[in-house]
Simulated assay, not measured.
Amino acid sequence: MGIVERLVPDRLWEIFKDVAPVPLVRAQGGGRRRCDDRAVLAAIIFVATSGCTWRQLPPVFGALLADSSSTLYRLVEGPSVGQGASGGAGPAGGEW
C-alpha cells in the first residue's frame, strides 16, 4: 500500500468522489494531462497534517509537483473567476 492509499483509504475516497467536481472537458481537446484526484487529495491531506508547504511535498507525489499550484486551484476552487459552472463567462443568461 502506497502513501496515497494510506492517506486516502478506499472508504474516504468513496465519500470524496461524491462531492469532487466533475472534470471539465475542453471542447478543443488537448491540454495537460490531468493529475489523479486521489493523489491530489492525498497531497492536500499530507500538507495539512505535516505542516510542510506545497512545494516541500516529498518526491513520492511526483507529477503533482510539476503543476502544483494550478492543479490544487482547479481541485479546490473550481472554474476560473468570471466563469460559471458551464465554463462560460458570467452567470446563466448572460446578465450580471
Results as ranks from 00 to 15, higher is better:
3 I>N: 09
3 I>K: 15
95 E>R: 11
36 D>P: 01
15 I>W: 06
7 L>S: 05
4 V>T: 15
21 P>H: 10
46 F>T: 04
93 G>W: 06
81 V>A: 14
10 D>F: 05
76 V>Q: 09
30 G>S: 10
6 R>L: 14
67 D>M: 04
94 G>E: 06
79 P>T: 03
74 R>N: 12
36 D>Q: 01
34 R>Y: 03
88 G>K: 12
47 V>Q: 01
82 G>L: 08
5 E>M: 05
3 I>R: 15
32 R>K: 14
7 L>A: 10
39 A>W: 00
64 L>S: 02
64 L>D: 04
79 P>Y: 08
33 R>D: 04
4 V>E: 07
48 A>G: 01
20 A>D: 09
7 L>E: 03
93 G>S: 14
59 P>E: 13
55 R>N: 13
22 V>H: 03
86 S>A: 08
29 G>I: 05
80 S>K: 14
67 D>K: 07
85 A>L: 14
70 S>G: 04
65 L>W: 01
45 I>N: 03
79 P>S: 06
56 Q>A: 15
16 F>K: 03
34 R>E: 02
35 C>P: 14
6 R>H: 10
67 D>R: 12
87 G>P: 11
67 D>H: 13
62 G>V: 04
16 F>H: 09
66 A>N: 12
94 G>L: 11
37 D>Q: 01
90 G>S: 12
51 G>W: 10
65 L>H: 10
48 A>E: 08
29 G>Y: 02
85 A>Q: 13
39 A>C: 03
74 R>H: 13
77 E>P: 01
6 R>T: 10
94 G>R: 02
78 G>E: 05
26 R>I: 07
50 S>H: 11
19 V>Q: 06
34 R>F: 00
78 G>K: 03
86 S>K: 10
89 A>H: 09
58 P>H: 00
78 G>S: 08
20 A>C: 14
11 R>L: 08
82 G>E: 08
58 P>C: 00
44 I>F: 12
63 A>N: 08
18 D>L: 08
83 Q>A: 12
4 V>N: 08
35 C>D: 09
26 R>Q: 12
11 R>P: 02
68 S>E: 02
59 P>C: 02
8 V>M: 15
10 D>I: 07
50 S>F: 07
80 S>C: 05
86 S>E: 08
46 F>P: 00
43 A>Y: 05
92 A>C: 07
35 C>M: 07
89 A>Q: 06
41 L>K: 06
21 P>R: 15
23 P>R: 15
56 Q>S: 15
4 V>L: 07
44 I>P: 02
83 Q>T: 09
46 F>Q: 00
30 G>Y: 01
60 V>W: 10
39 A>S: 14
95 E>F: 01
28 Q>W: 13
25 V>Y: 06
15 I>R: 14
32 R>Y: 11
17 K>E: 15
95 E>V: 02
23 P>Q: 12
